[in-house]
Every structure is written in structure tokens, then in C-alpha cells.
Amino acid sequence: MSSVSMTVNGKSVTGEVEDRTLLSTFLREDLHLTGTHIGCDTSQCGACTVHVNGKAVKGCTMLALEAEGADVRTIEGMANDDGSLGVIQAAFQEHHGLQCGFCTPGMVMAADELLKNNSNPSETEIRKYLSGNICRCTGYHNIIKSIQAAAAQLG
């Protein structure tokens, strides 16, 4: 076991992990941040997407130890300071961009990165960008609508 320290959603955290412990496992099992979901074992579904030093990363593709000293943000850190939904989260609710909610945290984290890098993405750009995030419920229609609405609002 090794000690690991990082900042998660603005708070300093420290834990003891095995060398093989994935970042996603550390977040869920040690920090109890269960909003980051595990949907596959081949790093393809995107349900575990979090931000590491500002970049969207699949939490199952990183060892917890690799995040030593990193600034990590999870879905639990995406709401406004007053607890209200952030712009992307609110757009997903407004446009029914989620059903079962399991892929949703990853979708929100991916959308946040997309809109940071491209404030006015085309429909095609959004669809291509989400190729690493699988949703089984929505047919993606309302996810795309939600992201378009968030983009419009964020300007």
C-alpha cells in the first residue's frame, strides 16, 4: 500500500492505495464519491469520466497513484457554490438529457470539457466528441439538445 494525496473538488485528500488501484476505484471506494460510475472494463463507456488537472479523463484509465498531487474534479463538484445546478447540469434537466442517470456524470464531465475548448460546437462536433461516452437510454437526441442549449447559454 502506498500513500496518495490529491485535491478532489477543491478539498485536499489523502489515502492508502494498492499500486493497482484505479483512480475511479479510489474515488468510489475510498472517498465515497459514488457519482463516478464504472460501466465497463475496457475504458470505453465513459461513465467514469472525471477531470484531472482540467482535462476530461476516464477514471478507469489512470492509477490512483498517477493522480498524486493532481487537481481532480468529479460530478459531485459540478454544482454551483450555492448547491444549485451548474449550467450544463441544468440544461440536461431542462432538456430531458438523462433517463436512468448512469452515464450522466460522464456525459456532463465530457460536455464540460467540450464547451471549454469549443464554445459553439456544431451538432456533428458534439456527436463526434461523445464517441467515448455511451448512453443506452436516450438515443442521444436529448443529450445533444442539452449540450447545444448549454453552449448557447454559456456563449
Binding site: 468510489r28 471506494e29 465515497h32 464519491l33 459514488t34 457519482g35 463516478t36 460510475h37 464504472i38 468529479t74 460530478i75 459531485e76 459540478m78 454544482a79 445546478l85 447540469q89 440536461f92 434537466q93 431542462e94 430531458h96 438523462l98 442517470g101 448512469f102 450522466t104 456524470p105 456532463v108
Partner: peptide, 20 residues
């Protein structure tokens, strides 16, 4: 708007594997 969305959008859903 769906009331369940708030917990899903903030990581506060409670799926079976979230229960320890």
C-alpha cells in the same frame, strides 16, 4: 422537469454498487 434528475446530475444517485 424530472425531480430525480437533481440527484443523478450531482452524483447523489444511489445504485446498488454505491451501497457499502
Amino acid at each position: 422537469k424530472r425531480r430525480e434528475d437533481v440527484r443523478f446530475l450531482t452524483g447523489r444517485g444511489r445504485y446498488v454498487d454505491d451501497i457499502k
